[in-house]
Amino acid sequence: MTRAKGHFEIRDEKRQRVKALVLTGYGLNCDYETDYSLKLAGAESCRIHINEFMENQKPGSKKLLKDYHILIIGGGFSWADDHGAGVIMASKLKRHLGEQIEKFISDGKLILGICNGFQALVNLGLLPGFENNYKERRVALTYNDSGNFIDTWVTLKINQASPSVFTKGELKMELPVRHGEGKFYASDEDIDLLFKNNQVVLQYAGRDGREVNDIWPLNPNGSLKNIAGICDPTGRIFGLMPHPEAFNHYTNHPDWTRKKEALIREGKSSASVDGDGIRIFRNAVKYIADRL
């Protein structure tokens, strides 16, 4: 629960120059807390409606992706999600921003898709992005095995060998999931390939962090191989079903009153108020700041 120390402070000034963009509109939500998390991580973040990038704005007022370093597509129910979660958002982004997104990636910038955003990234083909093919749908997030929406906290095992720049130095994290279509699905060959490339970043695990065998609700949706989040081969595009922005404060954690009481008995108090989820945003901001 401690705020990251060390070189972060030195680079504060640089971090403030890291510009992050949280998309809003068309049924997306989670934008306030995602924007807040990015600000906590030091970025200059803003919430902008998708149409500001697309529509015929007044001359000079159209927003451009190139003005940002981190693109975040967050949670929600974009276009009501009736044709498969994230499907229409992907179609819209591809048509209107396809080239800008390609440039964004080749410029070495970061894209994070959370929940509905993850669903959009796999439908766009930005994930898994095997062999730099960012246009092919190879994996899917489909209906939870339970057939129902679920809100529960999960424990995630983090693959340290993964190239993901968002999870550097992380072993384990607890975050909430809140979705009805989060079951990770792909062909056996593609699952093997994901593991081989270390593109599997997050897996649902037991509360102690050890692997589980598809036990509900530890694996809340029946994801194959407990996969909860993947990245592209560069590690700069990352999608996950759990919500790091919903763990922005230590009181978000379901055990916080118990942990607090335990610390008091040990004569200690919490060192930091930030939630663990902020570390994902901080890693992203640091990655960009280091390269500015």
Binding site: G75, F149, D151, T152, N252, P254, D255, T257
Partner: peptide, 23 residues
Amino acid sequence: ISRQYDHEVGGGSVIKPLTGKGW
């Protein structure tokens, strides 16, 4: 019933509908 409802969106959840060691 509680688990079917998103009770965390907004990012400000402090005391949740279900609590205790086993949540």
